[in-house]
Simulated scan of single mutants.
Amino acid sequence: MRILETKNVTKAFGGLVAVNDVDFHIEEGEIVSLIGPNGAGKTTFFNLITGIYEPTKGEIKFLDQFLKKSKPYEITKLGIGRTFQNIRLFSSMTVLENVMAGQYCRTKADLFSAIFKLPNARKEEDRVMEKSLEILDFLDLKKIKDEIAVSLPYGYQRRVEIARALATEPKLLLLDEPAAGMNTGEKKEMQGIIRKIRDKGFTILVIEHDMKLVMGISDRIVVLDYGNKIAEGLPQEIQHNERVIEAYLGKGGAA
């Protein structure tokens, strides 16, 4: 089943075209990596999918629903969760509280019930905590649930951000450079985490610069360069694609 599809998606900022006429799709259960040199338009493409930007031209369809003019919170409720290139955890909150914050888009209790702790709100609060603890356990974070999230080592902060994204109960998970700033051991762990998440039934779209990680997790790879899609294929196909080599190394490096 095709879970996400874009047709002719373009985003221009004045005279600068950041994403140009991109056709893209991802099937349910896939891990697809979106790669390209710095400035290729990868994060802009993520921001179009998640409603931070509106396309200048083209269509984005998620689970047969067009996302035109949809707000980020509406897209999250539809089932697209994401992390960010720069970690955005709530600085004064614990690991558990950060993950619980992700769950609240799935709550139904109204403000009155929440303020006055009515039975339906208390029941929902219990459900949110139970679900959040389940996610922390899945990502081996339960033992640090009461730690202030931003006080943790960088690799753990990345994992907490992924846990919060999973708490939104996404059908499609977008990971924006999940291994950025990590050492070799942490990258290896992250590779295992991404595979584990997919094996749990999630569909995953990844932006990542670390080619070893990309080649190790991807079912397919899509390559952007200056906002244009220049290649798409299996990891081994992309690895030997002349246009991709040229984009990363320049004509002299590809010779």
Rank of each mutant, 00 (worst) to 15 (best):
L4Q: 05
T6E: 03
K7G: 05
K7P: 08
V9H: 02
T10D: 09
K11I: 04
L16T: 15
V17G: 08
N20V: 03
H25L: 00
I26M: 04
E28A: 12
E30H: 11
E30W: 06
E30L: 10
V32M: 07
F45P: 02
F45R: 13
L48E: 02
T50L: 10
Y53P: 05
Y53T: 05
P55M: 07
E59D: 11
E59A: 03
I60A: 00
F62I: 03
Q65K: 12
F66C: 11
S70R: 06
R82W: 06
R82E: 08
F84L: 10
S91V: 11
S92Q: 08
S92W: 02
S92C: 10
M93Q: 14
L96N: 06
V99L: 00
Y104A: 01
R106A: 03
S113Y: 12
A114R: 11
I115L: 12
P119E: 06
R122C: 13
E125L: 09
K131A: 15
S132E: 08
K143Y: 09
K145L: 05
K145M: 14
A149C: 03
V150K: 10
V150A: 07
Y156Q: 05
T168I: 03
E169Y: 04
P170A: 04
K171M: 11
L172W: 08
L174G: 12
A179H: 03
N183F: 07
E186D: 04
M190L: 14
Q191K: 11
G192D: 11
I193T: 13
I194M: 13
R195E: 15
K196E: 15
D199C: 02
D199G: 03
I204T: 15
V206W: 01
I207Q: 00
M211Q: 01
V214R: 01
I217L: 05
R220G: 00
I221E: 02
V222F: 13
D225Q: 09
D225N: 15
I230Y: 08
E232K: 04
G233L: 10
Q236F: 00
E237I: 13
E237Y: 07
A247S: 11
L249P: 12
K251D: 08
A254M: 07
